[in-house]
Design a protein around this nucleic acid. Structure first.
Lengths: 228, 228
DNA sequence: CGGGTTCTTGACTAGTTTCAAGCAAAGTGG
DNA sequence: CCACTTTGCTTGAAACTAGTCAAGAACCCG
């Protein structure tokens, strides 16, 4: 992450109106609502999702510490997706009203926000390829790889191991598959290959290169990124 | 689209380094390349896509007049997707080097760029839900609705009719389905419902509300948008 | 120790891909 | 102007993949 100038730092400090704690399972941004705020995740996992009228849910992406959510709602009239806390989450709150000041006076920060938006788009693009063009097994392997790398970037991996807050239902809703089929695919991945371990909310990649081979493509971590 | 101030207008004019013509079928931005330029589509259709190593292709989204492509490649080190002209396309070229000047001196334009990025994200989000959670029939109906509305926004619809440049392979690669199944689904949509007509590259929506009913959700057009 | 949520499994059904072949329209070159 | 090739569309059958239903096991929490 790049260094701030003192002026930027002062502004960002003031920009940060508040800190917000959200319980696991609570949606703090909702589709259809016009959001007054923009958030940066300081700790915990959240996910962006959309629901269809009949209850089908699609998880679009996950947000980890240093990720920003709610920009769409701030720029457009209303949110087109919801965001739910997967674990207890701490958020940094930016009032929408100050976003314009930021653009007017701190172009470097404005640039960073655009960077973050472009990065988010990149992640969804990858997810889209995953759903559209990969088989269930490849898809699942790729998602796990993706989540592992992102958790690693956020510093959540400790000796090859992460605290993994997902239920299989979450993965199913991310992968666009049914719960049952996700379970069976996961089992195939676990037993047949032994490339991963996942038990009691703890996830471990025991054979990364094998997982990469199954996924058909590696996921490379970001070198640097802005943090606002 | 909002009005520019004279100063903005002057800058944008100068910013526009060049105009570029691309033949149908040519990829003018490529995954893995570091792009020196940012483009705005002035006329024609293009599409963003990603390829897997074995040749599978996923189309991520389409770009119509007034849409911007290549922002990711300008901000990041390299492009993570390619862009191909679907019809002959006219592009407006912005040199990457001037993007920073734009942010520094024209915050309103910077804001517009962020708006466009957020809008693009919104579209991919919708596409993701479509692939992940809708059946083949719903999915196809929704895509056609989506394309029709966007073409309409861009002023390409003339008495309920558009020049439709897609092959069924394009739709298949957008929908994440095989060509054969796309063909059969399309036929089901055509015959069983009579909600659309598509022949000789000309597309017509003969029964919009029925199509909406099949898709399970309507697509509402944008009211206003920036254009750079 | 319940009672709820999550995970697991098998059997059955529905949806989708693959393969293969034929057709139609458009484009190319002798 | 007519073979000939190419590209895109269409169709049926067979094989495979994924979803649904149902029920039981395991786990977690108060």
């Amino acid at each position: 992450m790049r260094e701030f100038t003192p002026a930027e730092l002062a502004f960002v400090k003031e920009f940060k109106a508040d800190e917000l704690h959200v319980d696991a399972g609570a949606s703090f941004l909702r589709e259809g609502a016009s959001s007054e705020h923009l958030y940066t995740v300081l700790s915990g996992w959240a996910f962006r999702y959309k629901m269809l009228d009949d209850g089908r849910r699609q998880i679009l992406n996950y947000a980890l510490p240093a990720d920003m959510v709610g920009l769409q709602g701030t720029l457009m009239h209303e949110m087109e997706h919801s965001v739910e806390a997967l674990t207890p989450v701490t958020l940094c709150v930016f009032p929408r009203s100050k976003l314009w000041d930021l653009y007017a006076h701190f172009p470097s920060l404005a640039f960073d926000i655009t960077w973050l938006a472009a990065r988010e788009e990149q992640l969804i693009d990858e997810n889209l390829v995953n759903l559209g063009r990969r088989s269930a097994l490849e898809r699942t392997a790729y998602l796990l790889l993706h989540l592992f790398v992102r958790a690693d970037e956020a510093g959540l991996v400790k000796n090859g191991t992460i605290q993994f807050p997902f239920t299989q239902q979450h993965l199913a809703d991310t992968l666009g598959m049914s719960l049952v089929h996700t379970n069976k695919t996961l089992k195939r991945l676990l037993l047949a290959t032994n490339a991963i371990r996942w038990k009691d909310r703890v996830f471990e990649m025991t054979n990364r290169s094998l997982l990469v081979e199954i996924a058909g493509q590696d996921v490379t971590p970001r070198q640097s990124r802005p943090f606002i």
